[in-house]
Simulated assay, not measured.
Amino acid sequence: MRGTTGGARAVAALAALLTVGGCTAQAVDADGGPRGPVHIEVTGTAPATPAPSAPARSTPAPAASEDDKPSTAPAAPAPPPRVLWSPGDTGPGVRELQARLRQVAWLYDGPTGTYDDLTGQAVSGFQGKRGLPRTGETDTVTWQRLLDMTREPGQWELYLMGGQPADAPDPRCLSGRVLCISKSSRTMRWMIDGRTVSTLPVRFGSEYTPTREGEFQVYWKSRHHHSTLYDSPMPYAMFFSGGQAVHYSADFAARGYAGASHGCVNVRDEAAIAELFEEVRTGDKVVVHW
């Protein structure tokens, strides 16, 4: 019996092994001999292999409408620079232009208030140095570049060579024949009975040799005068107070208000002072005021 039981256990173990493996085994009888092939049904279910799914179909994006498309219209062109001043123009704007060109060492003459050949050449050079068209005319682009590089000129810079407007005449100048000289506006009016005949820019003495103020008279005229004290020419001199006189100054003509006299009233326009010298008489009044 024990042998039979052991054989049965062996058969059961083999059947269990085959059930797990899923194979066909050969059965044995109770005595251990073969009984012929036995088909063992496998009761376990193998995991199912999923069928391949169909590829996902992409949905095309909706076509962009005309409103969604970026605009391809060209941008409006920038307006061309506007010309502010050109050769032949005059006025305070031209004077400021010249003063600013002097600040950046492109102009050494003036300011005169007249857009002359030297001003045009200075503007052309300034433009070329900065990659701008060398037109010689001051347009809005050129002017802005110059403004960015300079400061606002003072009154003395604007009228470095004269030409500033004269202020109101002193009340003492409103009667008779008078050389009416203003230190504040640096001008001299030649007046007859309250009427201004001509106006000239003038220069005065320094703080160490100031031009005296007050009311005087022309006491001596000397057409070709030469100063023995300073060894310098004083043509068309009209003396009014000691050694101080109204006269032509070549230094004033060359340097403008960058210099000063030794107390005299300097005139830079030689032709104008020569004409005035002929009109002024000994004994005519001279008023020097602020």
Rank of each mutant, 00 (worst) to 15 (best):
R2Q: 13
G6A: 13
A8T: 10
R9H: 08
A13F: 11
V20T: 12
V20S: 10
A27Y: 03
D29C: 01
G32Y: 09
G32E: 10
G33E: 10
P37F: 07
P37V: 15
V38Y: 10
H39T: 14
T43V: 12
G44P: 04
P47T: 08
A48Q: 14
A48L: 12
A48G: 13
S53E: 13
P55S: 11
P55Q: 10
A56M: 06
R57K: 14
P62K: 14
A63S: 14
D68R: 11
K69A: 12
S71M: 07
A75R: 13
P80M: 05
P80E: 11
R82E: 12
W85V: 13
W85S: 04
S86M: 12
D89L: 04
E96H: 02
Q98N: 03
A99W: 04
A99R: 05
R100H: 02
L101D: 01
R102S: 10
L107W: 00
Y108M: 04
P111Y: 02
T112E: 00
G113W: 00
Q121G: 05
Q121E: 12
A122T: 03
V123Q: 04
S124R: 15
T138W: 00
T138F: 02
T142H: 02
W143F: 10
W143T: 03
R145V: 12
L146I: 07
M149A: 13
R151C: 03
G154K: 07
Q155W: 15
Y159H: 02
P171T: 12
P171G: 12
R172P: 00
R172Y: 03
L174V: 08
L174Y: 08
S175T: 15
S175A: 14
G176Y: 06
L179I: 10
C180Q: 01
C180A: 13
I181R: 02
I181E: 01
I181K: 02
G194A: 08
R195W: 03
T196R: 04
T199R: 00
L200Y: 01
P201N: 01
R203L: 14
F204D: 04
E207K: 13
P210F: 03
F216C: 07
Q217D: 05
Y219D: 09
Y219S: 09
S222F: 02
S222W: 05
S222T: 08
S222Q: 11
H225F: 15
H225T: 04
S227G: 09
S227D: 11
T228F: 06
Y230T: 11
A237G: 05
M238E: 04
M238F: 01
F240I: 06
Q244T: 08
Q244D: 09
A245Q: 02
Y248P: 02
A250R: 12
A250Q: 10
A253S: 06
A254N: 05
R255N: 09
R255I: 01
G256W: 04
V280Q: 05
K285W: 00
V286D: 05
V286Q: 03
